[in-house]
Amino acid sequence: MTENMTNILILLLLVIGTFFILSATIGVLRFPDVYTRLHASTKAATLGISGIMIGAFLFLNAEFQIVSGKLILGIIFVLLTAPISAHMIGRAAHHTGVKPWGRDQEAQDEYADDYRNQK
């Protein structure tokens, strides 16, 4: 009975993880510019990877009685690095002159205004 329950739990975690990664991919395809695409790729991917890794952790624990610390460390490192890499990509895009996409009119961009005033 408990074995069944853990199996269902592992299955659920893996399915949720893959679902979020799939959504991230679709988001990258659907959104209009760099910044909105970064939203999709950083946020949805972190939860997707966490789900898959926790699922793998539980599977290894239930099947082989291994407590795999590496998987937990992997989650922590993804959570630490994803926002920083997104920040750097966004900053680099802005410095090379990518304008944020706006609906109907030009998007509000206070960073560009302040940047111009400094010069």
Partner: peptide, 26 residues
């Protein structure tokens, strides 16, 4: 906040009509 943001972004991804209005604020 991580869980909430994921649900939020998935909502944005699957909305048939994209009604958001992005921009940069200070």
């Amino acid at each position: 906040e991580l869980l909430l943001s994921n649900i939020d972004i998935v909502k944005w991804v699957y909305k048939p009509k994209q009604t958001y209005n992005p921009g940069i604020f200070a």
